[in-house]
């Protein structure tokens, strides 16, 4: 619902991350499945937000991020797409779950 404002924040963050932002060719972003953001809308917003910015040449690359669950009993780490999930091996409900709910600027590809 608010993808455009997030796209604007990403453009600003990418523009401020390097001394010569006009050389940025690719902006790598990890979008969590539970971030509440739609990747297609974010990509659309990014195209609009980069116009008249310091990184007009940049292309957005989105990688989807899952949530990570951990079962202490099995010492098992597993990926899933819910806020909370039981252990897929023993069914225990006593799992720790984190990640997959954020939008992160992962990398910038910059021309030499």
């Amino acid at each position: 619902m608010h993808e455009f404002s997030v796209a604007q924040q990403l453009v600003l963050a990418a523009s401020q991350a390097v001394p010569r932002p006009e050389l940025v060719r690719e902006v790598g972003v990890r979008v969590g499945l539970l971030s509440g953001l739609v990747s297609e809308s974010l990509a659309f917003g990014f195209e609009a937000a980069k116009q008249h910015s310091a990184i007009p040449q940049a292309v957005l690359k989105i990688q989807v991020a899952y949530r990570s669950g951990f079962c202490p009993a099995c010492n098992l780490t597993f990926e899933h797409a819910h806020f909370w999930a039981p252990c897929p091996k023993c069914g225990s409900q006593d799992t720790q779950n984190q990640g997959g709910d954020d939008v992160q600027l992962a990398y910038l590809e910059v021309d030499e």
């Binding site: 990403l10 991350a17 690719e26 992160q104 990398y107 590809e109």
Partner: peptide, 14 residues
Amino acid sequence: MTRIPQNWSLKEQN
């Protein structure tokens, strides 16, 4: 082209 890792996070900003 050079890849420069970044660690900006929306959640962290908020």
